[in-house]
Structures are given as C-alpha cells and as structure tokens.
Design a protein around this nucleic acid. Structure first.
Length: 110
DNA sequence: CTAATGACGTAGA
DNA sequence: ATCTACGCCATTA
C-alpha cells in the first residue's frame, strides 16, 4: 500500500454525478493540507483506468488544465457533463450542488 | 543515493 | 473577480 493507493481508493468511491476537490480527497486520505499530492497522484492515473479521476476538480470548481495532460482535461469536462454535472458560462462547476459528501461509514468499507 | 517532476490551496494585493 | 508567491512531498529515472 503506497500513499497514492490510498488516494485512488478514495477517488474510486466518488459516486457518479458528483465531484470532489483535491483538498477534500487529501483529508479523507489522512493527508490534510497536501492537496497537491492528490493532484500528483491523479497525474499518474491512466485515462482509461477504473478510477473515476474525472470527478476530482480543484477548490475553485474548475478543471485543472495543463499542457501536460494532452487534452485529458477537456475529456474530464465531457465525462462530467455526461453524468449530469453542469458548468456555468465561465467553465466552473457549482460545487454547492454537486460536491460529494463522504459517507460516515466510509472507513468500514476500506 | 540524488535530481526532476508535477491535476492544489491559501493569503495578500 | 484576478493575479502572484509560496508551502509541500511521493514517485520515478
């Protein structure tokens, strides 16, 4: 079990139609304040992985775009919209409506 | 062992 | 709202 494995386990539990922030994942993974690690971890994830990486966005509610992603950032938006997540005209998600709330019994399923 | 590498968050201007 | 600066660290070559 590596640190990144923990992060992937959390991400795998995000339900369709909802999104989580990097910071949120970090805290659930017992890595408070280390949101970057979550980003670093997701960077390693293959786009065709079984991990719903597209449900993770930054605290601003926007998709973190980067040249290093070679378009997977645009794909992320497409996948989210396919699940019913709407973006406003500035490309931001209304986190208040779609933000995932981790179930209290999450730990029992680990 | 060392060096390079990145999907963030927050605070202040 | 938008921008800059800085902290932070596991994984890979």
């Amino acid at each position: 079990m590596s640190t990144y494995t923990i992060i992937y386990d959390i991400v795998r539990q995000i339900p369709p139609g909802t999104v989580a922030t990097y910071g949120q994942i970090a805290e659930l993974a017992n890595l408070p304040g280390k949101a970057r690690l979550v980003g670093y971890a997701l960077y390693r994830v293959a786009p065709d992985s079984d991990i719903p990486w597209h449900r993770v966005v930054n605290a601003k509610g926007t998709i973190s775009e980067s040249p290093e992603r070679y378009g997977s950032d645009h794909l992320q938006r497409v996948l989210l919209e396919a699940e019913g997540v709407q973006f406003d005209r500035t490309g931001k998600i209304r986190l208040r409506d779609y933000l995932w709330t981790a179930p209290a019994d999450r730990e029992s399923s680990l």
